[in-house]
Amino acid sequence: MNMNRIAPTALYQEVAERLRQRIFNHELTPGTWIDEQKLAEQYGISRTPLREALKVLASEGVVELKPRRGCYVTEISRQDMDDIFPLMAMLEGRCALEAVRRAKLADIRALKAIHERLEVAAKEGRIDAFFEANQEFHRLIQELANNRWLLSVIQDLRKVLKLSRLHSLSLEGRLQQSLEEHRVIMAAFEANDPEKAEKHMQDHLLSSRQALARQYDSNTGKAA
């Protein structure tokens, strides 16, 4: 049995999810033309659910539908990053503020437990483990904010950012710098200080953008 094939009765959402993961895993790289016929044959489906799936991904900014040219995986430019990160800083800063206001003692403990994983991963130099804990740290704060509109916009923007191959944590000193930024965010939660949590989260996101810019310059041989 071909495990790549999708049953004809499957919904287009399943097709969209499979393509989304292939894109985020860079099996389909930015700028790649999407061969609809080939994918439809691979998944064992008609082109109708495939096209519906591509419309979903286009609405998320993951692919681009170009008239008379077909569908392409979205490419993220430096300008895109410069445009997105200030928005992320503003939105996630607001999440942190609302999260502090709503968080109960058990919530602070749960966040602290994730932060301890960041501490251990940083001490051991395990970038992948740090990255995963970092994702959970931010996700929990977003959940604690309990603002579905903020969460929806942040999730859409983060999907677009996943298209970038850059990984700033591999830069010398960035792992420790990121840990320090998480420490002050955590301290603001423990001190029940929503304004500081907002400010520190904004600073953290903007610092991440600066680190990505340095990595881009390093990869292209430009001066930082």
Rank of each mutant, 00 (worst) to 15 (best):
R94F: 00
E132S: 12
I185F: 03
R183Y: 08
R139H: 11
R78V: 10
I114N: 07
R109D: 13
M90G: 09
R174H: 04
S168C: 09
G93L: 06
A110R: 14
G173F: 08
E132W: 00
R102E: 02
E172H: 12
A103G: 04
G173I: 01
R158C: 11
E92R: 10
N134E: 10
M90D: 13
G173C: 09
A99H: 11
F130G: 05
L105R: 15
K159V: 10
V160R: 15
H167Q: 15
L166A: 04
H167A: 10
E98P: 00
N134W: 01
M186I: 12
D82W: 00
E181K: 06
R126D: 15
E172A: 12
R94W: 06
G125S: 07
G93K: 01
M186G: 00
R174L: 02
H138Q: 14
V100A: 05
E136D: 15
N134Q: 10
L171C: 03
A99T: 11
D83M: 07
A133K: 05
L179A: 09
I84G: 04
E180S: 10
L166W: 03
G93A: 08
L105Q: 15
F85N: 08
R148F: 02
S168P: 15
M88R: 14
L150P: 04
R165Q: 14
A110W: 03
V120C: 06
R174K: 13
R183I: 08
L175R: 06
D82K: 08
N147C: 02
A103K: 05
A110Q: 11
V160N: 06
K162H: 13
Q135Y: 00
A191G: 06
G173Y: 05
R78P: 00
H138A: 14
F189V: 08
S168F: 08
N146A: 15
S152W: 02
A106D: 15
D82S: 08
I84T: 00
V100K: 05
N192G: 02
R101C: 11
S152R: 12
F189I: 07
F189L: 09
P86S: 02
E124Q: 15
F131R: 15
K123W: 04
D83F: 02
L161I: 12
E132H: 04
R94C: 05
E116W: 09
H167E: 13
L105P: 00
V100E: 04
N134S: 13
D193P: 07
N147T: 02
A110F: 02
L169S: 07
N134R: 04
L151E: 14
A121C: 07
C95M: 14
E92N: 06
V100P: 08
Q135L: 12
